[in-house]
Design a protein around this nucleic acid. Structure first.
Length: 453
RNA sequence: GCCUGCGUAGCUCAGUUGGUUAGAGCGACGGACUGUUAAUCCGUAGGUCACCGGUUCGAAUCCAGUCGCAGGCGCCA
């Protein structure tokens, strides 16, 4: 049988798809569980390619020689015959002819046990949690989502733009930033920060390539202590030219649906795991939401809906000029629309300076996509393309106009109506999988006071 | 930044109005048994009750402080 990839091994996922007994295979992986008996012994291996393990069958002699070193977590390489299994829970197994212990794992001190444990506990051993079912599935899905994000845009001719991680503008109004310094020296001649958004930078490219996107890490130095905030997270920011807010919303909906459905199709076993062990019913709710048009309301309509809610007291009062708080967003997505909803045309005072002012002068062509359980996963807008209006708004926001000279230049040289949105990768993964904490969908979560790994 | 809650074996948790030697299940280890499936059965080891003061004849338990963690809110993705 031909080995997968480099030829050094047979990946478990490929073996299970083969579905024909016979031939010699080599499986590499880590011990999930093992059982030793007088006549026959079993070792189950995982290699990260599948939710399934491969059962390795050992003779009494092989078991006796390796028993002490085949505890949970040990790294092993097994060569043997791919055979029909006599057991009920798997169709095939490996009858071992050669067993090599590649890396020992002391069962007394190895913190991953052959039993369930809490996600909180696993956060304290983030270097070892990829060895568990939950994190195997989570990070396979994260990989698949990332792949389909690129595929979606590449198929549509979008250019992936690598906007800088180190930026100079600290006045985008997107929260606190991490400053980048070397000693006391202004390394770049002026103050620099880790990016909190690639949007302003990518706008220069949209006015040259028409359809572009960014996909990379983003940093926020806010002291946010919640299950859906991290100091370092990944964001996707498409930007389209010759486009208005309706075009942006249409893109966002197509994008979410394509990426989610493709990921579910690519990782059926992982989603079966999430539906069984993490959040029963979530997969059905997600599929239901993806099968019909997302709801859409203006901010004014949303306020109207909230004002008419009977028999409920709000912590933050509902009324004219209100800003939508978490409790209001959750009510809209979870109780009223029972699915994803685009809220559009917010009061301009509540939103960023670059969002395009509506003709009424009161609202901007912005949108947030709210989903049940998470809240906002997308924030987007049509951008202000009119030079005079943009200059006025920058001043109204109390920002230094001269700092935006190159951003304003775009409005001088062949400006176009354009817009885009930012999607939080982790929040999308949380909504898809039912994982409740952003710390558990990031490989190495960074939150205020915490960056151990 | 604000509010609330929680720190007891490796893990998940009990622990009464403060009362001798702090418990269970699982895991680990040892044995038995078995084409087994987080097997099953029997047994063994394992705890400075987060830390530091105080109250008391006596503190896991009551009080104060410190540290850590979690959840909610604000900010946002």
């Amino acid at each position: 049988m031909t080995a997968h990839g480099t030829g050094r091994r047979n990946a478990i996922t490929k073996l299970l798809k083969g579905a024909v007994a016979g031939g010699t295979v080599t499986v590499t992986g880590w011990v999930k569980t093992s059982r030793f008996g007088k006549n026959v012994s079993f070792v189950h291996l995982y290699d990260g390619s599948s939710t399934h393990t491969v059962q390795v069958v050992l003779t009494p002699e092989q078991a006796e020689a390796n028993k002490a070193r085949l505890g949970v977590g040990a790294a092993v390489q097994v060569t043997g015959t791919w055979s029909a299994s006599q057991g009920g829970e798997q169709a095939f197994e490996v009858q071992a002819t050669d067993v090599q212990i590649v890396g020992d794992c002391d069962p007394e001190s190895f913190p991953i046990q052959k039993k369930a444990t809490s996600l909180e506990n696993l956060r304290t051993i983030a270097h070892l949690r990829p060895r568990t079912n939950t994190f195997q599935s989570t990070f396979r899905v994260r990989n698949a989502v990332s792949w389909h994000i690129h595929r979606f845009f590449q198929e549509r001719g979008f250019q992936w733009v690598h906007t800088p991680i180190i930026t100079t503008n600290d006045a985008e109004g997107a929260g606190e930033l991490f400053e980048v310094k070397v000693g006391d020296e202004p390394f770049f001649g002026k103050k620099t920060f880790l990016t909190c958004s690639g949007q302003l930078a990518v706008e220069n490219f949209v006015q040259a390539f028409t359809d572009v996107y960014t996909f990379g890490p983003t940093f926020r130095a806010e002291h946010s202590h919640t299950a859906r905030h991290a100091a370092e997270f990944w964001m996707i920011e498409p930007e389209i030219a010759f486009a208005n807010l309706d075009d942006v919303i249409a893109l966002a909906e197509d994008f979410i649906k394509d990426v989610c459905l493709s990921t579910i199709a690519q990782c059926p076993d992982d989603f079966e795991f999430f539906d069984k062990r993490i959040e029963p019913g979530n997969l059905a709710r997600v599929k239901e939401a993806l099968s019909k048009p997302f709801a859409r309301v203006t901010w004014h309509e949303a306020v109207e809906i909230l004002s008419n809610v009977k028999g409920r007291t709000w912590e933050f009062p509902v009324g004219p000029g209100m800003s939508l708080q978490s409790e209001h967003e959750r009510y809209l997505a979870e109780d009223h629309f029972k699915g994803p909803v685009f809220v559009t045309n917010y009061p301009s005072v509540q939103k960023a300076f670059y969002m395009r002012e509506d003709d009424n002068g009161e609202t901007v062509s912005a949108t947030d996509l709210l989903v049940p359980g998470i809240g906002e996963i997308i924030g987007g807008s049509q951008r202000e393309e009119r030079l005079d209006v943009l200059e006025r708004r920058i001043k109204q926001f109390g920002l230094p106009v001269e700092e935006y000279w190159w951003y304003l230049d775009l409005r001088r040289f062949g400006t176009t109506p354009h817009g885009g949105f930012g999607l939080g990768l982790e929040r999308l993964i949380m909504w898809l999988t039912g994982m409740k904490n952003i710390r558990d969908v990031l490989p190495y979560p960074r939150t205020p006071g915490s960056a151990e790994f």
